[in-house]
């Protein structure tokens, strides 16, 4: 009973804030509504017993991605009014595609059946929580995928640097060696300043 009530509360707020994300006039409000949507989705995950996904959603999406969004929105001068210009123009096509995909989804899900020969579900046995179960297999059984994901992130990092880093001439950079190598004699000059004359 309590679960059903929580489900309706979370899902209502989730859908409402998701709509608010695209309807809000102020982009900062959009991002804040996005954060609310993430938190509600995390709540839904908790109800389903997926506590690891819920925490990851809060930590990664709310903690990192949404905050980054907020910075981008506040610091870059993005003209949202212009970005929304084509909205009405593309609305019919968008609605058509959404309708077709939605109809297909309903068709697929309504007639859903798992294979009679489907592999057994990999639910962790006993009292192990999801997080502990993930920890047991992530670096052993799924070692390959973990390493592959690492290579992908490295590629993304190199790619971001290649595309954005610019070597400008005349930029002042911190030279730690030079900073540490400075002596008192080289850096400070003592002068006797005569009164009422100055240097």
């Amino acid at each position: 009973m309590a679960e059903a009530v929580l489900f309706w509360i979370f899902s209502t707020i989730l859908v409402g804030s998701a709509i608010a994300v695209i309807m809000a006039r102020n982009p900062v409000h959009s991002v804040l509504f996005l954060i609310l949507a993430f938190v509600c989705a995390a709540g839904l995950f908790l109800i389903m017993g997926a506590e690891f996904l819920a925490m990851i959603l809060v930590v990664v999406y709310v903690g990192a991605v949404a905050v980054l969004f907020l910075f981008v929105v506040m610091m870059l001068d993005v003209d949202f009014a212009r970005m929304k210009q084509g909205f009405v123009e593309y609305l019919p096509q968008g609605l058509l595609i959404a309708f077709v995909v939605g109809a297909e989804l309903v068709y697929v899900v309504s007639g859903w059946s798992a294979s009679p020969k489907a592999a057994a579900a990999a639910t962790p046995s006993g009292t192990l929580s999801n997080t502990a179960a993930l920890g047991q297999v992530l670096y052993t059984r799924y070692f390959y995928f973990f390493q592959a994901a690492g290579m992908i992130l490295l590629t993304a990092m190199i790619g971001a640097i290649v595309i954005t880093l610019q070597h400008k001439a005349g930029v002042k950079r911190q030279d730690i060696g030079a900073q540490v190598g400075r002596t008192r004699e080289a850096a400070v000059e003592l002068r006797k300043v005569p009164s009422r004359v100055g240097l």
Partner: peptide, 19 residues
């Protein structure tokens, strides 16, 4: 119920579904 190609082949052998 599996992402492994061999298991999928066994599960999707003669029985089809929309999904």
């Amino acid at each position: 119920g599996s992402v492994n190609f061999g298991d999928i082949a066994a599960a999707v052998h003669d029985h089809r579904s929309m999904g």
